[in-house]
């Protein structure tokens, strides 16, 4: 590493921390929202189901980059909101993550066979008891591995926050690169840092998957 670039080690480190933080935050918020949308998907009411389908399809079809732009510039102008790049990035990432998570939640719930639902009802369980004691304990195991995938995908999408000027890992790298004029090396460092982070997460995910594998 050339000394000019190495001098910025603190900037890179801070970028890593911020990237981890914002993607984690978006995963939590997106998970909560995705949970709601996922439950809407299996609702008895057709209108709710449709709403959930449209929500998922729209936020899966609009590019995250376009969403970032819409949340930052669009919302700022339209609603005169005092949205910081951080807030806008969190909203955009949450929307993207929630669409992915709603599918994970739905798949998790649907993995529990219908026979079990009927068995639970016939043994006198209420809807909430059914979920608490029958569905969730099994669905969580099914949901964990793809959730790790959603986290990695959210972490990668968080690089787009650089476009609206949020100084996370990618933007840190781009600024260092513009200040030093050294493109290849700085970009390579950024790529390697992302790889290390995401690969570690995916290893943890694989370990979790092995541990929680549901034995039929």
């Amino acid at each position: 590493m050339s000394p000019q670039v190495a001098a910025y080690w603190f900037v890179f480190l801070k970028g890593v921390a911020i990237t981890l933080w914002i993607s984690w935050l978006a995963l939590l918020l997106g998970g909560a929202l995705g949970f709601v949308v996922g439950m809407m998907r299996i609702s008895k009411w057709t209108a709710l189901r449709w709403l959930a389908v449209v929500y998922t399809e729209v936020f899966r079809s609009v590019p995250p980059l376009v969403l970032f732009f819409g949340c930052f510039y669009g919302l700022s102008f339209a609603l005169q909101l005092d949205l910081s790049p951080f807030a806008a990035a969190t909203i955009a990432l949450t929307l993207t993550a929630s669409a992915l998570m709603s599918e994970v939640v739905r798949a998790g719930i649907e993995s529990v066979s219908h026979g079990q639902w009927q068995a639970a009802y016939s043994s006198g369980m209420r809807y909430d008891q059914l979920f608490r004691y029958v569905v969730w304990p099994q669905a969580i195991r099914v949901m964990l591995p793809p959730s790790v995938g959603v986290y990695i995908s959210t972490l990668k999408d968080s690089s787009l926050a650089s476009i609206i000027g949020y100084v996370e890992l990618t933007k840190s790298g781009l600024l260092v690169r513009e200040t030093t004029g050294i493109s290849f090396e700085v970009l390579l460092i950024i790529a390697i840092l992302y790889f290390i982070i995401n690969y570690s997460i995916s290893l943890v995910g694989t370990a979790l998957e092995r541990r929680f594998r549901y034995v039929h």
Binding site: R177, S183, F184
Partner: peptide
């Protein structure tokens, strides 16, 4: 593993600016 774990944005920058340099 490498390509799945690096954001596309970084790959685009790397090819356009990095390789050119």
């Amino acid at each position: 593993e490498v390509l799945r774990n690096i954001p596309l944005l970084v790959v685009i920058y790397l090819i356009f600016f990095g390789l050119a340099q």
